[in-house]
Measured scan of single mutants.
Amino acid sequence: QNEKLANELKSLLDELNVNELATGSLNTYYKRTIKISGQKAMYALKSKDFKKMSEAKYQLQKIYNEIDEA
């Protein structure tokens, strides 16, 4: 289960640069939040902690959705 979550989180991290570029014309909230979420996700992957990875995955998905809707 950890392996599956780690792969999903890696996949979301692969999209980080594209989504970060998409924040160029948006409010600074999005820029700041996506950077923080990305850092948390990288830390969670290194720690291999299921709870941290779950939270990081949720945060990344949430900010990606917010950027898409903005």
Rank of each mutant, 00 (worst) to 15 (best):
G38R: 14
Q61C: 11
Y43S: 14
Y58V: 10
Q1E: 14
K62I: 05
I36M: 09
F50M: 07
R32Q: 09
K31Y: 09
S54E: 13
L13S: 00
A41R: 01
I63N: 01
E8H: 03
E3H: 06
K57V: 13
L60H: 00
K31S: 07
K57L: 15
A41V: 04
T33F: 09
S47M: 10
N65H: 11
L16E: 00
D49P: 02
K31R: 11
T23A: 14
A6C: 10
T23H: 06
F50L: 06
L16A: 01
N27V: 05
L5P: 01
V18D: 08
A22V: 08
M53G: 00
I36V: 10
G38F: 13
L12Q: 00
N2S: 11
N17P: 13
N19L: 15
Y43T: 13
K52T: 07
N65L: 10
D49L: 04
E3Y: 07
Q39I: 14
S25A: 10
E69F: 08
Y64I: 14
T33H: 09
A44S: 03
K10E: 06
A70H: 05
I36N: 05
K46T: 08
D14V: 06
K48C: 11
L26V: 03
L26Y: 04
N2P: 06
Q1L: 12
A22Y: 07
K51G: 08
K51S: 08
E8G: 02
K62R: 09
K48M: 14
K52D: 05
E20R: 10
L21W: 08
N27P: 14
D49K: 03
K35P: 01
A56M: 04
Y30L: 10
S11C: 12
N17E: 14
S11V: 10
S25N: 14
S37E: 11
Q59W: 15
K62A: 06
A6V: 11
L9V: 03
Y29G: 03
G24K: 14
N2T: 13
K51F: 08
K52I: 08
I63D: 02
L45M: 04
S25W: 09
K31V: 06
K48F: 09
Q1M: 10
K48Y: 09
L21M: 09
Y58Q: 10
D14T: 08
E15F: 12
K40L: 13
E69P: 03
K40P: 00
E55Q: 11
N2Y: 15
L26R: 03
L9Q: 00
A6P: 03
K4E: 10
N7L: 12
L26P: 02
L45S: 01
I63W: 02
A56G: 02
K46G: 06
T23K: 05
E3R: 08
A44N: 00
L26S: 04
M42H: 09
A22Q: 08
L21G: 07
Q61D: 04
Y58R: 10
E3N: 07
L13R: 00
Q61H: 05
S37H: 11
E8A: 06
K46A: 14
E15M: 15
M53T: 00
E66Q: 09
L21P: 04
S11L: 12
L12W: 03
L16S: 01
L13A: 01
N17G: 12
E66V: 03
T28L: 13
S11M: 13
Q39F: 09
A44D: 00
